[in-house]
Design a protein around this nucleic acid. Sequence first.
DNA 1: CTGAAAGCGCTTACAG
DNA 2: CTGAAAGCGCTTACAG
Lengths: 330, 330
Amino acid sequence: MSLGRIAEATGVSKATVSWVLSGKGDEHRISVATQKRVKDYAAKHNYRPNMLAQGLSLGVTKTVGLLISSLTDPFYSSIAKSVVEEAERYGYTVMIATSESNYEREASLVSSLDRRRVDGIISTPTEGAKWLDGYLAGGGKLVLLDRPVPGEDAPCVGVDNEQSAYKLVSHLIGKGLRKIAIMTTAHNLVNMQSRQQGYERALADAGIPLDGKLVCNVPPQASVEQINAELDRLVRDVPDLDGIFFTSHVLVLPVYVWFTNRGLDTRRGANWACIHSLPEFGLLLPEISIAQMTISKLGAKAMDMLLEEIECGRQLQERAVIINCEMSLK
Amino acid sequence: MSLGRIAEATGVSKATVSWVLSGKGDEHRISVATQKRVKDYAAKHNYRPNMLAQGLSLGVTKTVGLLISSLTDPFYSSIAKSVVEEAERYGYTVMIATSESNYEREASLVSSLDRRRVDGIISTPTEGAKWLDGYLAGGGKLVLLDRPVPGEDAPCVGVDNEQSAYKLVSHLIGKGLRKIAIMTTAHNLVNMQSRQQGYERALADAGIPLDGKLVCNVPPQASVEQINAELDRLVRDVPDLDGIFFTSHVLVLPVYVWFTNRGLDTRRGANWACIHSLPEFGLLLPEISIAQMTISKLGAKAMDMLLEEIECGRQLQERAVIINCEMSLK
DNA sequence: CTGAAAGCGCTTACAG
DNA sequence: CTGAAAGCGCTTACAG
């Protein structure tokens, strides 16, 4: 069922049908009788407006693309949830695409979203993200989420990585801990580097010399065995280890299990700190100190910024927004 | 940059440009020189085909909708991942929409996908799913995933709920356990009812009388407190409790913590069984018996069925496909 | 109060 | 080997 057929059947023009069905009937002073006739017919025949045609005609789709690394990672799925929620408040739909951390794939997804004429894109870009240039040059609207891309001036909303790490580690030091390990991963990411810098600054400010033996850096998709090996190395090298700072929530659970299997103090969490957390931490490690990324705020802010770009046309004045982590110090 | 402008600039017709750019240049015997001229111009000016126009013209979008309950639940995000993977193999894009288990929202999302002219929809429907009728009546293609809708004859791919439960509980009985509790939730869902039936049949076959005190049924989004209260009740009523069957992976972690906090046997997992599992189970409860839903198979099969509906036009002969769970009995 | 017409950017018979 | 033209289903100035 199309506009044209409704027009034919009800004996009015397509313009009239279009106006009536888009709620502009009164505005165009279409008679109540005609409006009713058209609406009834559309309803009875289950008219479904074709948004492809609308988009083509209007030049906007009221759709934004969300390009994230993965859906199975709770961090990204939470981002997706908050972006979708915020978008809906403004009548936008979001098309979700996942790069699976594969650069080629990411670039091709951008192109796909672009060909579908999304009004803009929010992305947690994979490293490099050369596609940025082309997309922006073509007039594409974009907001980066969580991961700034050095050397690009796309608007970005992220978190205070360095400072959160500093606060957490300082908190551990304040408890009297001195041999605090750092467990980190994906060290190529600027976010992770910032977190390590926060760790180092906290130690320096407390006059604690940096000890390379305390630094545990595991590869991005490290196996349990790799992590265990690193922990074995750590406790061998530093028998009087008394605290751990995790740069990412993904590392905590394997370490928890390693400690549990050795029958170590179940209250150990009190000497641990981590950037971000998972729901199960509340159950397993109630004593761990957390700098929680407020994902809902991140997602909503990114969406707001994108909407401003889209609807106001003008460049955003705030190019880089930082949302502070919520500290939960135990 | 549009087809028309390329045609103008290169001095050929829109038809020629369309054929060249869609790879049908040779087929239409366009001269190599012309083809090169057109392609070069398109590339230099960064031509991005407008898929809205293509979709409108062709009547198909090579896009399918995936309508799931949630993205933050690992079960659904895994489904999403597998559906997206399979779709891509056939050149389809998937639009993901989340109902958040809200029926109104779900119905409106179906309508939104429909208006966007997706070629078909895969859905894990919320209860009732009255929208099915209207969508199917309008010629919509649909495959149900995981959750059959009683009384509707939409094609569906699900798992052997009753049998998997039966196998798990029989396995526990085979270990000599006699006081096996069932922890269940969302009992309004047919899947959950089937699982409970499997539990009951296993007991019956072993000549063990059904004991209502062993049945723990908690509400869908139960708080830790509610679950704890139910467990308190259970061990009070059944002090010689010796096993637990979980109808869903979501219940295991809170119970694990409840047991841990009471300092109970860490090898307790050996007397537990669960339908489906989460990655952390491998770390925390290596001894639990599992009937694992092979989500990748479910997703891929649903997509295959939908594709067959879409591309072959004909009704599917296999209306209900069951993918058996993978048993891991410890 | 309502209509005729052009246009959005494609594709594809139909011609030559 | 290539073009002119109609059509997909909408929206929106422009008329009357």
